[in-house]
Design a protein around this nucleic acid. Structure first.
Lengths: 140, 140
DNA sequence: CTTTCTGCAAACTCTTTGCACTCGT
DNA sequence: ACGAGTGCAAAGAGTTTGCAGAAAG
């Protein structure tokens, strides 16, 4: 099970990392096709999944059921414009997450925000026997 | 277009508001069926959509492409356990969002968190004064 | 050469929709 | 009775997968 460096994989990686607009899989496919017209959508999906597993890109589920792909790997948040549909990266200053007041001052009209944490709940954390308490919590 | 109070609509509403586990549409369907075996999944979807439009419930897109339905209407956040899959509501204190340190103290092991804002971007805010539904912008 | 990856198309999952009929009002 | 709502089934949209052949190592 030795991974191979294929042209398709490289192209998908390049497209996602060159993009700043959080493209969907179909958008990535279209862009890859500009240079490599025969790539299939299935291959693009397989490579996106592989890169996500390797932490070489991020999958974001924002407002609908369509996954979007993000080459920015550092911790950051998102702004979704409900009017034009654009997704903006909000780079997070150390231990100072973006807040409504700051964004408002920058010209954004915030209607709502959703904060979701991922990890292990108290019950599952207790059940972990062969591990010490999870002290390696990633912070803002 | 005068809305009607049907048995199915009421049942869907009741199920979502009685649930605390953020059920998917199929789960809502199964629960409604326990009392009303002939309701169709399509009707459940239609009523969930209607209730969401009326702001009588909330649709949340957490980790995958399956929508989950939440009867809790006040501003709050979510914790998704990556081990057992459970989704917990985190009630938000006035303009003091839950932070990693607090959750850690409560026994949660935070691996990552995602913060997403919804509203109008500076460009759109300038351009218009009235709100519009998010457009399905197709971009290549 | 061997094994992974690709292209294609079909399958799958989640959600929406057209149609004839039902049931609130 | 009128028309919004329902059940059913089929269509859509997004994503995954099986397979034969291509190509990376």
């Amino acid at each position: 099970m030795k991974p191979r460096q294929t042209r398709q994989l490289g192209a998908v990686y390049d497209v996602v990392h060159a993009a700043h607009d959080h493209p969907t899989a179909e958008e990535v496919h279209a862009r890859v096709r500009r240079r490599m017209p025969r790539v299939s959508l299935g291959t693009v999906y397989r490579n996106l999944q592989k890169l996500a597993t390797q932490q070489r890109l991020r999958v974001v589920h924002l407002a609908d059921r369509t996954a979007r792909y993000d080459g920015m790997l550092q911790e950051h948040d998102h702004f979704v414009c409900e009017r034009c549909g654009e997704v903006t990266d909000l780079v997070r200053k150390r231990s100072a997450p973006p807040d409504c007041a700051t964004l408002d001052r920058a010209g954004y009209g915030i209607r709502a925000h959703a904060l979701t944490f991922y990890g292990t709940c108290p019950g599952c954390g207790k059940a972990m026997t062969h591990r010490r308490a999870p002290s390696r919590t990633r912070r803002a």
